[in-house]
Design a protein around this nucleic acid. Structure first.
Lengths: 210, 210
DNA sequence: ATCCTTATGTGATAAATGTTACTGTAGATT
DNA sequence: AATCTACAGTAACATTTATCACATAAGGAT
């Protein structure tokens, strides 16, 4: 077990890993579980060891605007940030593929920051990369039109899973980009005509490299 | 001098304040100066003691999409985040009102995190509040239409300056919301008809409380 | 096979936003 | 006062995105 954790978080020092074992509690959640809601208080930092969690903003109409995904070896930046004052969450976190996580009580956060260099670096790097990711999201919605955003979205997905097939329905994509299914269907059709993708039921194959 | 800094950053411990005096370099910049460009490497963390800095994303066409403003007592979250690896900046920072700043060499960042509790708390709080602010920006562009965004934008401005007059041209507003002047003019006219604002040359008066 | 549910394709139309082109106006400049 | 320039108003039109209304298809369940 120590070993697996070591593999997933290769940069953590051995002492840190033991401390995590001691103080964290390993938990599993099924796909569909909502781990965090807007307005809810945050009591734990979450380290993902297996599966996938979607971090999104919820619109009044129930839109699920995608911010980013959390995958093994990553942690929820928001839950780290809200540490000190156990602030309210500003986002929603939903399990999209069954996950295993380590729940770390918030008090540990501050403590480890001082005691474990590798924890400190991990936290800072988590902040940095997420901030950057969100900035990129802003860029996309501020400066790009839907067809470009869709292309970007598909690439992001295929990068994340490492394969060129994106297994999502048009409806799911539409929800995450906060538009309607028809729009996505139409744009995908155009992309197919341009030879960028191949469309199948519940699956889109990217024909572009990179 | 120590005294002023103490007033502007009331939560900093006295030792921290002295250390800042010793290691930081006080500098002034005129309105219009670009302090940081996209793609540029970051060498300093910036503490604002006077004036106002605009943090924005630049579109290919030169759009200046507003993320947030930095004011006295605040620091650039991005420059802090990019610390360790002296990463490239993802944003633009432009002085909008003559500023005085303390430039802190990046090496200090990590050092002080360990040594000064009040610095640590300041950094974490900076991260948190900026992240939140950016999330709110995402919300706005993802879920709201231009008229709502404009209203939000005006409120934000009047909150920031504490008065109900926003001294900006339609063109400036349009640039920051990445739309065109005509659109802003139209929407403002509608708002005026609804009794929400009073329009004057280079100035918009908000007639709504909060 | 037949039925059912979910996913997808597509036209018609509406609404929001962007663009072009021009007018008017206030204040600064000379 | 005459002129200039930046700012603001607005009509007409183009484009993009959203919505409505169906048609069709694919795959699972019976």
């Amino acid at each position: 077990m120590q070993n697996t954790l070591k593999n997933i978080f290769p940069n953590f020092s051995n002492e840190l890993l033991s401390t995590i074992e001691e103080n964290g509690s390993a938990q599993d959640f099924k796909a569909g579980t909502i781990l965090m809601r807007t307005g809810q208080y945050i009591k734990n930092t979450v380290l993902i060891t297996k599966g996938k969690i979607k971090i999104y903003r919820e619109g009044e109409d129930g839109g699920e605007f995608l911010m980013y995904y959390l995958q093994p070896g990553q942690a929820c930046a928001i839950s780290m940030i809200c540490t000190a004052k156990s602030e309210k969450s500003q986002i929603m976190a939903k399990v999209v593929e069954d996950v295993s996580v380590m729940m770390i009580p918030l008090q540990m956060m501050d403590k480890w920051m001082m005691e474990h260099r590798s924890w400190y670096e991990f936290v800072i790097e988590t902040y940095r990369s997420r901030f950057e990711e969100v900035l990129e999201v802003v860029d996309n919605i501020a400066f790009r039109s839907m067809d470009e955003r869709l292309e970007f979205y598909l690439k992001r997905h295929s990068d994340a899973c490492g394969c060129s097939e994106v297994k999502l329905s048009h409806q799911e994509i539409a929800t995450e980009l906060n538009t309607s299914r028809e729009v996505i269907s139409r744009l995908l059709k155009k992309m197919e005509q341009r030879g960028l993708v191949k469309l199948n039921r519940n699956q889109i194959e990217l024909l572009i490299k990179n």
